[in-house]
Design a binder for these strands. Structure first.
Length: 466
RNA sequence: GGCGCGGUAGCCAAGUGGUAAGGCCAGGGUCUGCAAAACCCUUAUUCGUGGGUUCGAUUCCCACCCGCGCCUCCA
């Protein structure tokens, strides 16, 4: 079965291929850098990372653009309060975000773009809309006139008929003709940063930045536009209104949205005290790859309940995966190839691919991995697993890890060196051979304290980092 | 009220019109000087509730109950 994604626009799972058959032009909404990103944000970015990786594994090339929103009300307010320019204020958070991405092993998008560096493009797009009669000015700010765009609501599947015409809703500080209208360009206010452009002195509204940047780098119709579910309305709906009205073409073929993460069954919020950044969790002693695993294992369109029990379960699952890999790398097997096992491994590969192709069904893909682990472990214990099966089993693990990327241990600062460990292991083996179990156990405990676990196998001792 | 999502074992969770994947936890066993790792066995006659369609439904339809998201801050 071919690669399929659930498309929010059509509300259906559809077969996916980039329009040119080769390169996927993808735009994802990145963070607003007014604070550290939280674990919920990172769930979405984890999904985007899986998406990237699976698209490439599927044979496509990528042209992925992610934006960084570095001008926006909250930023301006915070920067002003801190007596800083918005650049000064956002820079540390942008850097922290990129660091977090690296920590969680996200691949870098081909391009990361800042809103503040694309103001002229935004002004140009606004002008285009004005030329088409789709904007109006109120108190110096420019608004989009939604009544001029008949498809409004097609992404969020909202019917706005009821709230149209006449119902002048006065909930905003700005004066709009229609409740659905939104601001494209905000007139300069005293003490706020602003840009002098063809549409006036001021700053861009939130929605216009994504339209302008996406089209600048990826063309008028994207293959994929992705983000969190909360962006469906109004953000993505408004992007469609702006972009499609300007170009007359569909803005994106596929709209993919990831569900939110909740914490211990509740919505994450600062007031509930369950609001975590990646830094918080790492400070509590949870390695990044465990967090990554937890974030990947639930398919992206389901809510993910983030719990500390879940983190423990993820750690145990990763242990099993790593132990299997270690066994594959270090065990000795009888010569030859077991054809049945080769078939079994091939089936695991097919199951894995089938699950990922099915709208990134990571739970199904993981099941394929663990089933193979059980079956081949049994075969190894029974002497059925042959030397010739090793390479294909390792290749399968490599496929798995090229997507999930959780097998490598994140080395702690000041970890013990391999040479020192090998020496201690040798000393312990000597003591053990002399049946001095007190000494051998003491060395084993000492190593354990350093985060090294020993395993006695038929082929000798092997060790691994915790 | 409108739109949408979900309710599967102690927890996380996949799935299909034909009789319940996988992970974690728990109990028992094999192996070991003891461990560790690994493997085996055990843990849902049942998939929110009540109807209906069907030879057969967890899977389709209807109603209801419960939880949740969006409806101009938000991944």
């Amino acid at each position: 079965m071919a690669l399929r994604f659930y498309n929010t626009l059509t509300q259906q799972v559809q077969e996916f291929a980039p329009s040119d058959g080769k390169t996927v032009r993808m735009y994802t909404c990145g963070p607003t850098v007014y604070n550290f990103v939280h674990i919920g944000n990172l769930r979405t970015f984890t999904f985007q990372d899986l998406l990237r990786r699976w698209l490439r594994t599927s044979g496509f090339e990528l042209n992925h653009v992610m934006n960084i929103t570095d001008v926006e009300d909250k930023i301006i307010r915070s920067a002003t309060a801190a007596g800083q320019t918005i650049q000064q204020y956002t820079k540390p958070y942008e850097e922290a975000f990129l660091e977090d991405c690296k920590t969680l092993r996200f691949e870098k998008p081909e391009r990361i773009v800042r809103a503040t560096e694309h103001i002229p493009e935004m002004a140009e797009l606004i002008q285009k809309l004005t030329e088409k009669g789709l904007t109006y000015t109120s108190e110096g700010s420019v608004y989009y006139r939604i009544s001029g765009f008949k498809d409004y609501g097609k992404l969020s599947h909202n019917d706005f008929a009821g709230m149209r015409a006449g119902t002048r809703v006065d909930v905003d500080e700005y004066d709009k003709d229609d409740a659905r209208d939104f601001v494209l360009w905000k007139m300069k206010k005293d003490g706020e940063p602003s840009w002098q452009t063809s549409v006036g002195d001021g700053r861009p509204g939130w929605h216009i930045e994504c339209s302008a940047m996406a089209m600048k780098y990826l063309g008028e119709t994207l293959d994929i536009h992705a983000g969190g579910v909360d962006l469906v309305f109004p953000h993505h709906e408004n992007e469609i209104a702006q972009s499609e009205a300007a170009t007359g073409k569909p803005f994106a073929s596929f709209w993919l949205h990831s569900e939110h993460l909740i914490v211990e069954g509740q919505k994450m919020s600062k007031s509930l005290g369950n609001f975590y950044t990646l830094r918080d969790l790492i400070a509590k002693g949870y390695p990044p790859e465990i967090i990554r695993y937890l974030l990947t294992q639930v398919p992206y369109r389901n809510k993910l309940n983030f719990t500390f029990d879940g983190l423990k379960a993820a750690a145990a699952a990763i242990d099993r995966l790593r132990n299997y890999k270690l066994r594959l790398e270090t065990d000795k097997y009888p010569a030859g190839v077991n054809a049945e096992i080769e078939d079994r491994i091939a089936k695991a590969g097919a199951d894995f691919r089938g699950a990922m192709d099915d709208d990134l069904n990571t739970a199904g893909a993981l099941a394929a991995v663990f089933e193979l682990i059980r079956d081949t472990n049994t075969a190894m214990d029974g002497g059925e697993f042959k030397e010739g099966n090793r390479a294909s089993a390792l290749a399968f693990l490599k496929l798995f890890d090229s997507i999930f990327d959780v097998l490598e241990v994140t080395q702690a600062e000041g970890a013990v060196g391999d040479a020192e460990i090998d020496a201690m292991v040798a000393a312990r083996s000597a003591a053990k051979k002399a049946k001095d179990f007190v000494k051998s156990d003491a060395i084993r405990d000492e190593l354990l304290a350093k985060g090294i676990i020993l395993e006695d196998t038929k082929e000798g001792v092997r060790w691994k980092r915790k």
